[in-house]
């Protein structure tokens, strides 16, 4: 059953990355806030949940929720100094924050076990479901993706979502219409953080083992690739991008079996393709595979 197992693994990863990509999409696609350190939120969710469950013995549900909250709080914290600044500053501060979180995980061995990582992370209901556990976990992830997709769509369709798009396209105008753009930016970083933290926590409990290696800047670039290829300001685009990029990323592992090329070079080649894909999409199809949908109001009045 290795192929079946692999397929289930791949689909579970689609789900986790779809959540991760949707969180970035909310910030970048809707609000135009360039976040180059999204992996920090993912890592915070993963570590918070894993450590609370492994070291403090708390229930997994509590761990996941705490992971979301920690990550959401970090979003607020990060938005604070930059909320009145241009997007260039967002880009660099988020990039740097991502590195600081990784350094923390690497250096604070008393808490995070440093480079050795956190092992034996419990999985939800693991004693109850034996044989088909990975199918169970996949269904669990699928349900979470569906719920998050629904909630995010409700948000982006609401006046809140409209405010985000206005900040993205014309921040001055939003201010002149009385919108508290700074507060909205903090809110959107918090919500993006919650979702990325959720993705991270689910990732940690799925992998059973996490270390700083899982949270390299590479992860941020991957989800950037996803929303650029899939399409921004469109949650379906983020999901499609997650599927496309993740399929490419995982499938190239098999190329190594047929082509005599080291794993390091393979991963370099893979990232070159993703980098070039980002550049080409932005030049030739900037809206991505699925474009932002025009919001119309059918005649109801």
């Amino acid at each position: 059953m290795p192929i079946a197992n692999f397929t289930i693994y791949l689909f579970t990863m689609f789900g986790i990355y779809a959540l991760f990509a949707m969180s970035l999409n909310l910030q970048v696609g809707y609000a135009g806030l360039v976040n180059f350190g999204q992996v920090a939120f993912f890592a915070l969710g993963a570590y918070t949940s894993a450590l609370l469950v492994v070291k403090a013995g708390l229930p997994i549900a509590v761990g996941i929720i705490a992971g979301m909250l920690a990550s959401g709080f970090f979003g607020c914290l990060l938005a604070w100094p930059t909320k009145s600044l241009k997007s260039d500053y967002w880009a660099i501060t988020t990039l740097a924050a991502g590195e600081v979180i990784r350094l923390f995980a690497l250096n604070e061995k008393w808490l995070t076990e440093g480079p050795f990582g956190v092992m034996n992370i419990p999985q939800p209901l693991e004693g109850l479901i034996d044989k088909y556990y990975n199918i169970f976990y996949f269904i669990f992830v699928l349900i979470v993706v569906a719920v998050v997709y629904m909630l995010l769509s409700m948000l982006t369709d609401s006046p809140f979502g409209r405010n985000l798009k206005a900040i993205r396209d014309a921040e001055d105008l939003s201010k002149s219409l009385g919108k508290n753009t700074q507060k909205i930016k903090v809110q959107v970083m918090a919500i993006g953080g919650l979702v990325a933290g959720l993705a991270g926590a689910i990732f940690a409990h799925y992998m059973v083992y996490i270390s700083p290696e899982n949270f390299r800047p590479l992860e941020t670039f991957l989800i950037w690739g996803m929303i650029i290829v899939g399409g921004r300001a469109n949650n379906r685009g983020a999901i499609l991008g997650a599927v496309v990029i993740q399929t490419f990323y995982v499938s190239t592992r098999f190329v190594g079996n047929y082509v005599p090329i080291g794993s390091d070079l393979m991963s370099a080649a893979r990232m070159i393709v993703i980098g070039l894909l980002m550049v080409s999409f932005l030049i030739f199809r900037p809206e991505g595979l699925l474009r932002e949908r025009k919001k119309t109001y059918p005649d109801e009045v």
Binding site: V34, D88, I228, G275, L276, L277, M278, L282, I283
Partner: peptide, 28 residues
């Protein structure tokens, strides 16, 4: 008249590509 945001993201993609080209040519 591409937005500065687009330019910035393009440079990020370019950076990823060039870093890995170095890795491909000269190894890690």
């Amino acid at each position: 008249n591409a937005k500065t945001l687009t330019m910035m993201i393009i440079t990020m993609g370019m950076g990823i590509a060039i870093r890995n080209i170095s890795r491909l040519i000269w190894t890690s």
